[in-house]
């Protein structure tokens, strides 16, 4: 249970990280908190030549509070969100989700950027940040690009990173006063990988109605116009209006073939609506 022998670098800024990523003669892995990569290294599932520690880059721990969104660096931890060291702009959605990620000892090191890049379908952030409409910003040799969180995940353990590219920040939109949200995950054991996640965000002022079926076998199923599931934007949210049949049809059309699996996912979203905040 010891990793292979790798080299280690702790660059001081993003451009130095990008310089190290250019090297295609060696397998280079970026590490932030290491709470997902660490176990894979220990089990030798991943055998890099060079591990590049991102936590020495001040920019990646920055927070930029803008008019309509808050931009957090890739190395912001789950505990930073949970403890409100990052100002909450989501009616407590992100701190509540953060509180349910793994265990406190993991949340003190695990990062939002690391979780998104590791791209585990069962992870919390990819589902909740997709529901909320967050975006990621990547930087690479040919400049920077921004894309929706749900597009950043290609499949199980695959993030949309070109050669030499890295995730630098996550932009989280500010929810307006009447926004509602919900999040429910089904786990066999507290803190372990979820079997199903249901998440949604309704924000009438911003004309947003989004629902997510997460913890699929691959990327989350994101319904960007979820009025059919969540009801009219101008009406009071009610779980009795939830159309379970429509939800089931949606995820079946998205490729979820197992009927029990679909049932768990539909129930997860229904419970997210029942427990809406």
């Amino acid at each position: 249970m010891k990793p292979v022998n790798f080299d280690y670098a702790r660059p001081g800024d993003v451009s130095a990280v990008l310089d190290l990523l250019k090297d295609d003669t060696r397998l280079v892995k970026l590490i932030a908190g290491g709470q997902s990569l660490g176990p894979m290294l220990n089990m030798r599932l991943v055998q890099p030549d060079l591990v590049v520690d991102l936590t020495g880059v001040a920019e990646l721990k920055g927070v930029d509070d803008r008019k309509d969104e808050i931009v957090v660096g890739a190395c912001i931890t789950h505990a930073d969100i949970e403890d409100y060291r990052v100002p909450d702009v989501t009616h407590d959605a992100l701190p509540t989700v953060a509180r349910g990620i793994a265990y406190r000892a993991v949340r003190n090191r695990g990062t939002m950027g690391g979780s998104l890049t590791h791209a585990d379908p069962s992870a919390d952030w990819v589902s909740m940040l997709s529901a909320i409409g967050a975006k990621v910003t990547l930087r690479g040799p040919s400049g920077s690009r921004t894309l929706p969180v749900e597009d950043y995940m290609i499949g199980a353990l695959e993030a949309d990173l070109a050669h030499g590219e890295m995730l630098v920040s996550i932009s989280i939109p500010k929810l307006s006063a009447r926004a509602r949200w919900g999040y429910y995950k089904s786990c066999r054991k507290t803190g372990e990988f979820a079997h199903a996640i249901g998440a949604f965000v309704i924000d009438p002022e911003r004309q947003v109605s989004r629902a997510v079926f997460g913890a699929t076998e691959s990327r989350p199923i994101v319904v960007t116009d979820a009025r059919q599931l969540l009801g009219d934007l101008n009406k009071e949210l009610s779980s009795s209006a939830f159309d379970a049949k429509a939800a089931d049809a949606m995820i079946e059309a998205a490729g979820m073939v197992d009927a029990i699996d679909r049932k768990i996912h539909v129930v997860a979203l229904r419970r997210a609506i029942e427990q809406a905040h």
């Binding site: 670098a9 190395c75 931890t77």
Partner: peptide, 16 residues
């Protein structure tokens, strides 16, 4: 902010 344990040391380039 950031992972606990980090942020105390200067940059270090490529330790073998």
């Amino acid at each position: 902010l950031g992972p606990v344990g980090s942020g105390h040391a200067a940059a270090a380039i490529a330790v073998a």
